[in-house]
């Protein structure tokens, strides 16, 4: 079973994230960039399926040149090869453009795929829609927010867990699955894995290589644009007291003074 994992490099959430004041896009230089934690879980889910069913795991990302670090991380966990769609003209692409571009590149992955695995939601944009959008472009079923994924023959089933409850989904392969954060604990790359990753094939595609028309992506033709953005002044702390046996009463007095109770 061949699996493609969609991964994204995102600003490290442990550092302060910023938007460019000029065009409202993500300021990628302001912060450390990491493989999104949810995508580590997507890679882990793919590796577990590969261990049970054989086949190959390919990592696919669309992002700037430095996203190769995120690719290396996924390869060092155990993925076999990678495809990196990277082109200056992609800067500022909207979700619709991103989904269409990813769908196009998916169609060119060597060896084809039976399953696409993604994260349910990226920690930067939080759009939580790209996997379903990619599936829509390709006419494939999408089984999203998986807490559990099982493949049996040509059928994939998912236990989908969201705030609204649990839904059991089933579909025939090929299909798109997105994983939720409770699906697994991702493995740490071993020293051997890190060394091996350096030799694994990474194909870098420009738009021309991928057969994508530059007018279909990027800020200039994005279907939505940010007109302005401002940082909000951070909230500052107020009074802090040491509990001397009357901490609860003091909170109550504060709430009364604020007319909250």
């Amino acid at each position: 079973m061949n699996i493609v994992v969609l991964v994204k490099q995102v600003p490290d959430t442990y550092s302060e994230r910023k938007l460019n004041s000029s065009d409202g896009t993500l300021d990628r230089d302001a912060t450390d960039a990491v493989l999104d934690e949810i995508n580590e879980r997507a890679v882990e889910a793919a590796l577990q399926l590969k261990e049970a069913h054989d086949g190959e795991v390919t990592v696919l990302t669309m992002g700037p040149a430095r996203a190769t670090d995120a690719i290396r991380k996924a390869l060092s966990m155990g993925a076999d090869k990678a495809v990196h769609l990277s082109d200056e003209a992609l800067h500022g692409s909207c979700a619709v453009q991103t989904a269409k571009a990813l769908a196009t590149v998916l169609g060119t992955v060597e060896g084809g795929f039976d399953l696409v695995v993604a994260g349910n939601e990226a920690s930067d944009g939080r759009s939580a829609a790209v996997p379903a959008m990619v599936a829509d472009v390709l006419g494939l079923p999408a089984l999203t927010h998986a807490r559990e994924v099982t493949v049996d023959g040509s059928t994939v089933t998912v236990r989908r867990e969201t705030d609204d409850g649990v839904t059991h989904l089933s579909a025939e392969l090929p299909a798109v699955v997105s994983v939720g954060e409770k699906i697994n604990e991702p493995r740490y790359p071993s020293f051997k894995g890190i060394m091996a990753a350096k030799k694994k094939p990474v194909v870098t595609l420009s738009l021309a290589d991928a057969g994508i028309d530059p007018s279909e992506v990027g800020l200039a033709t994005a279907l939505s644009t940010v007109a302005s953005s401002q940082p909000k002044p951070p909230k500052s702390g107020g009074e802090k007291i040491e509990d001397e046996g009357d901490g609860g009463a003091k909170v109550a007095a504060f709430l009364v003074a604020q007319k909250l109770i």
Partner: peptide, 17 residues
């Protein structure tokens, strides 16, 4: 970011509150 903070044991402060 707390408007009012109590440095203490939640098991003492919360029931009293």
């Amino acid at each position: 970011i707390a408007d009012f903070g109590v440095v203490g044991d939640l098991f003492k402060v919360a029931p009293q509150l």
